[in-house]
């Protein structure tokens, strides 16, 4: 079995922003810039492949590429744990790292690293992968470094998502629907406020009450109110 590597899938995928670009090249350069912005020694990025396994996508050095591949192969390590839990992972000091991940931790320490941080690539609550940050020092990243690391993680997420145009379109669509639904409710509050001579807060309560009574959504009631308001002219 030899599934197409994710990097190739991503590079082939078409999307507005990066269809004409080499995604892995872009991400590699982005991680290099990120490493120097943060003042850390190395970064590696693993992502969920289409068949739900984890795969190394890019790294800033060959040494880190091996460490990431080992984590994926062993199904153990900071990046794997971060992806599974969808929350950040921190391990400081050689003994902590070795104790926590017997195989990959040992390799991380042997490669000369004293601390690892991992940040999840999260998109609407779902983890798509994780960004691993390696430092020779065993110190924790400070607040501003963590914020910067999070921003680079988010930007990596965005670049990767650009290659998944269908998901993306659905999200645009649902965002648009949610925004439009909200607009209709506000308009109905205004219409009711005028028709009933109440303030907009009270108008909203009326909408909610009617939705409960009719066992329907507030958006539906709002739509009905607007339709009624257009038929009956009540001014003056």
């Amino acid at each position: 079995m030899n599934p197409k590597p994710t990097s190739q899938v991503l590079a082939e995928a078409t999307a507005a922003m990066v269809d004409r670009h080499d995604v892995t090249d872009l991400l590699t350069r982005l991680l290099r810039d990120g490493s120097s912005s943060l003042g850390v020694d190395a970064m590696g990025l693993i992502v969920q492949a289409p068949d739900d396994t984890l795969e190394l996508l890019v790294s800033t050095s060959h040494r880190v590429a091996e460490l990431e591949a080992l984590q994926v192969g062993q199904d153990e390590g900071p990046c794997v744990e971060c992806y599974r839990s969808a929350s950040p992972v921190v391990a400081l000091g050689a003994s902590v790292i070795q104790l926590r991940w017997p195989v990959s931790g040992e390799a991380i320490v042997r490669a000369g690293f004293g601390a690892v941080h991992a940040f999840p690539l999260v998109w609407h609550g779902r983890a798509l992968g994780a960004l691993n940050i390696f430092t020779q020092s065993d110190a924790a990243l400070d607040e501003s470094q963590r914020e910067m690391a999070q921003a680079f993680t988010d930007m990596s997420t965005i670049v990767i998502l650009q290659t998944q145009s269908i998901d993306q379109r659905q999200i645009t669509e649902s965002l648009r629907e949610a925004l439009l639904g909200r607009v209709v409710i506000e308009q109905a509050k205004g219409a009711l406020a005028h028709l009933q001579g109440v303030d907009t807060a009270t108008a909203y309560e009326l909408l909610v009450t009617e939705a409960v009574q009719r066992a329907t959504s507030v958006t539906q009631v709002a739509q009905d109110v607007l339709t009624r308001a257009q038929r009956q002219r009540t001014g003056s």
Binding site: E186, G190, H194, T200, L226, Q230, T234, G235
Partner: peptide, 19 residues
């Protein structure tokens, strides 16, 4: 922005026109 939408609703009711 929601005030603009509420005002649109009031004008809908005042004039019986579409949003």
């Amino acid at each position: 922005r929601q005030q603009v939408h509420q005002a649109v609703g009031m004008v809908v009711a005042q004039l019986g026109i579409s949003p």
